[in-house]
Simulated assay, not measured.
Amino acid sequence: MPSMPKSRFWTRTDTAGAEHALLDDGRGLAARGTMLAVDPVPWTCRYQVTTDPDWITTRLEVEVEGTGWLRSVRLERAADRWRVTTAEQGDLDAALAAAGHAPAGLPGTDDPDRLADARDVDLGGSPLFNTLPVRRLGLAGAPADTTHRITVAWVLVPSLAVVPAEQVYTSLGPGRVRFASDSFSADLDLDAEGYTLRYPGLAERGDGR
C-alpha cells in the first residue's frame, strides 16, 4: 500500500468522534481514512476513495464495524454507470434496536441506475467528501454566488445504504462555500486547497493547518 504525502484530521462537533484521512491529490484524489463516532451506536468506518484527474469519483470502498456486526460497500464507476456490491456480517439492526433506534435496512442499493447522474460520492458524516465537488467544479476560487446543482451517490453511515441525493454548492467568495441539501444548509470554511476547515454542526479541523 503506497504511502500518502498529506494528512487531514477533523474532530466531530455534533457527537463524540473524529476522522483522519491520508491523501495524495497530485492528479485527482487518492485517499484512505478512518472515522469513529458513537451515534447512533459506536462504530468505526474505514474508507478508500479514488477520482480521475478531473476529480470525478471512480471508486469508493467503505467498511463499517461495531459490536457484533460489520458491513461493507464498494462503488465502482465505468462507462457512466455505477456498480455497487455489498457484504454484511452480524446484525446491525439488532444493535440499533438494543440502543432504542430504528432499523438501518440493507446496505447498498437495489437499483444502481438511480445513481447514473452522480459524478461525486458523499460519505455521511465526513467533511473530506465535500472537497470532491469543490475541486471538481473549481469552487474554491470561483466568484461569489457561483452555484452548481449536482447529484451525488450518498452513502449513509453506519447503514451503508446508497441513495442519490441532490446537493447545491454556492461559492461565497475566497475560502467559503455554502452547501445545501433539501432543507439543510451550512456555510463551510475551506483552506487554500479546498479542504474543509470548519463545517458548522458537524466537524472542525484539528491538525493545526
Rank of each mutant, 00 (worst) to 15 (best):
G138E: 00
G138L: 00
G138F: 02
L139W: 02
L139I: 03
L139K: 02
A140P: 10
A140S: 15
A140G: 12
G141Q: 10
A142D: 01
A142I: 01
A142Q: 00
P143K: 00
P143L: 03
P143A: 01
P143M: 02
A144H: 02
A144T: 05
D145K: 07
T146H: 07
T146W: 08
T146N: 04
T146C: 03
T147F: 10
T147L: 06
T147P: 04
H148G: 03
R149H: 15
R149V: 14
I150G: 04
I150M: 06
I150W: 08
T151Q: 06
T151S: 05
V152E: 00
V152F: 01
V152C: 00
V152H: 01
A153R: 00
A153S: 02
A153H: 01
A153Q: 00
W154H: 14
W154R: 11
W154E: 09
W154A: 12
W154M: 12
W154T: 09
W154N: 10
V155E: 09
V155A: 12
L156H: 14
L156P: 13
L156K: 15
L156C: 15
V157G: 11
V157P: 11
V157E: 11
P158R: 08
P158K: 09
P158Y: 13
S159A: 14
S159G: 13
S159H: 12
L160P: 10
L160T: 10
L160R: 08
L160I: 12
L160F: 15
A161H: 15
A161D: 12
V162H: 11
V162G: 10
V162Y: 13
V163Q: 12
V163M: 14
V163H: 12
P164D: 00
P164M: 04
E166F: 12
E166L: 15
Q167D: 06
Q167H: 08
Q167E: 10
Q167C: 07
Q167T: 06
Q167N: 07
Q167L: 07
Q167A: 09
V168P: 04
V168T: 15
V168S: 08
Y169N: 00
T170I: 04
T170Y: 04
T170N: 00
S171W: 07
S171D: 06
L172M: 11
L172I: 08
G173A: 00
G173R: 00
P174K: 06
P174D: 07
P174R: 07
P174Q: 06
G175P: 00
G175S: 03
G175Y: 08
R176G: 08
R176E: 09
V177H: 03
V177M: 04
R178T: 03
R178K: 03
F179W: 13
F179I: 05
F179A: 07
F179Q: 06
F179P: 02
A180L: 09
A180N: 07
A180K: 05
S181F: 09
S181P: 09
D182E: 14
D182K: 15
S183I: 14
F184Q: 07
F184M: 10
F184L: 12
F184P: 05
S185P: 12
S185R: 13
S185A: 14
S185Y: 14
A186Y: 01
A186Q: 01
A186V: 01
L188W: 09
L188M: 07
L188D: 01
D189V: 15
D189L: 14
